[in-house]
Nucleic acid binder design. Structure first.
Lengths: 334, 334
DNA sequence: GCCGGTCGTCGAAGCGCTTCGACAGTCTCT
DNA sequence: AGAGACTGTCGAAGCGCTTCGACGACCGGC
């Protein structure tokens, strides 16, 4: 049970070298002869030595821990969140760092606490709001941070997200390849556009740009999230655009309703209407029929966020904004 | 930006006391006069002092961090997981601890590492398998741990979970009271049974035990999570068991699909088929119709796990096994 | 054969905190 | 009034590690 932990000085004694030599073997910050290194490493594994994290943090001013701030509140699509978290942990481990989990409900206090107490070296925040209270705090913090998502004023911050402009365009392109000539985008609820929320607008712009590039007809509409509103929107859409044969849905909550409405209106998917969604993979897969979709690359975003934050820790310059290319998965709805 | 952090000795100087006095004000381990305490606290907030976590861990042999080991892999219903995680973080904060997130894919190595390096004081593990490789390690570890879920041989461990055996039985009992004579259990995806994960098996055992106790006919089936698979399963079930009038669903991801499939197959709930779910409350409430359900008390389990692990840290004795009684909420589906 | 330059290693000085023993003062019994 | 028990505070000794400066040993160039 409670064997007292092995310390670096016991390793040094066992290997017949100075404490500092053991330290240098471990950190590689000074050259050590191959022979000495071998002896030290042998002693380390013979004794089962693990450096004491606290002592290391105290002496080196690095805890080798990064904070991950998750929303954990209603309205987020949780499975995606989890995949982000998982990706961040895995990526952090690759840089020999661990991950401290903070929930957003502790607000700025939690961030301030873990940063000020040197518990963490850096922070990764998820689900940043347009006007996020934490953003000013991050700006004045000594510890580097990376945001997943974009606030309204990202100046001075490092942000990473899916390239929604390209995602909108990619959907159009896919439908164009399939020979569709008139397509519509059903987006976020109108309130989201009114707020000029980044990702919704960016998708629409990408959609429209691609439309004119491919010489297609089309229309972009906001889309509410109750079944009745969705039904009306879809019905009117079909009446107003009899030539319509392709649909891009960028509204996770409405996807199911859209499919149900189409079914109810006697349109088969994909025979009468091709549907492409921009949504998490599992939503697309579970829909009936499974939807061709641009997936939200959680793993890649998480990995990239960690890479950026590590670069900042090492003092390397990083781009303010990193946009990840969309990936389209073809399923049975197109 | 990078103002050097305030240390305890600066606080001491500012307040005109010894360093140790500041420490005792913070820890309360010795009596301090009200007047001195006030002066020290004033200096602390005036200077914005935060104790250095590493230094504290080094000197006190306590990091005030607990590890949370999450599965993050297929077959688990992720939102529930998230609620566990959230509950653990919140509860840990209440004991002035933070939470380090480990993923199960690092296996025993990660656990060994964070324990040996004194990064964490204790561990909470989720989704323990019946024959979990990590269990022997936990037994020999000096750091206390608590499992959410039960392995096959829980001797010497501290485990907490919903009493799934009782939950399965409770559902049968409820349906028996309502006069149903042939009922089925739709459980987790088969991969979960193959892994022999405790909770799925225990629910089934409880279901079957109650079945024979009440002299009912019935069958227990695994249940996948896409609509098409669920539809097939339900359709076959109805064909094979024409007398079936009650259904227990223990699979959050599938409940919606089960209801949709029943509707599509012309069975009304509850008139033609009574349905009881074992799932988080919000899932049951949002279903249409709202489902009678045994709720999964994620918050309570997480909180309890943290309480237990803190008790162990303080050297207090704790029960080996904590089973939370199932609570059945009657809604309109039975 | 001597000088300057690496190379490999060591010793010691912290890093910021907790905790132990010591010790003046105060209070409470006799 | 004096012994004994508290109270409140201090100083100093670590906790286990990193890192800096120092210093022999060895190298090649002249």
């Amino acid at each position: 049970m409670s064997r007292r932990a092995v310390t670096i000085s016991e390793v040094a004694k066992h290997a017949g070298v100075a404490v500092s030599t053991v330290s240098y073997v471990l950190s590689g910050k000074r050259t050590i002869s191959a022979d000495t290194r071998r002896r030290v490493l042998a002693s380390i594994s013979a004794l089962g030595y693990h450096p004491h994290a606290g002592a290391r943090a105290l002496a080196s001013k690095r805890s080798n821990v990064i904070a991950l701030v998750l929303p954990l509140r209603a309205g987020m699509h949780v499975p995606v969140l989890m995949r982000f978290a998982s990706a961040v942990v895995t990526a952090a481990r690759r840089f020999d760092h661990d991950v401290l989990l903070l929930t957003a409900d502790e607000g700025t206090a939690g961030i301030r606490r873990v940063a000020a107490s040197a518990l963490v070296d850096a922070l990764v925040l998820m689900d940043v709001e347009l006007d996020d209270r934490r953003v000013p705090l991050l700006r004045e913090l000594a510890e580097p941070s990376v945001l997943i998502g974009f606030p309204a004023h990202p100046a001075g911050l490092t942000c990473v997200d899916l390239d929604f402009h390209a995602a909108g365009a990619r959907c159009v392109e896919h439908l164009a390849e399939r020979g569709h000539e008139e397509i519509a985008l059903l987006g976020a609820p109108s309130v989201v556009y009114d707020r000029a929320t980044g990702f919704a607008t960016r998708t629409r712009d990408g959609f429209e740009a691609a439309l004119s590039e491919h010489g297609l007809k089309g229309v972009a509409l906001p889309c509410e999230e109750t079944f009745d509103e969705v039904y009306e929107t879809v019905r009117d859409l079909l009446l107003d655009h009899p030539g319509l044969s392709g649909l891009v849905v960028h509204n996770e909550a409405a996807v199911g309703h859209v499919l149900a409405a189409l079914r109810q209106l006697g349109r088969r998917v994909p025979q009468d209407m091709a549907v492409v969604a921009i949504c998490p993979d599992d939503v697309a897969e579970r829909a009936s029929p499974p939807l061709t979709s641009v997936l939200i690359p959680a793993e890649e975003v998480g990995r990239e966020a960690v890479r950026l934050v590590m670069d900042k820790l090492e003092g390397r310059a990083v781009p303010d904004s990193t946009l990840l290319a969309p990936l389209l998965a073809v399923r049975s709805s197109t």
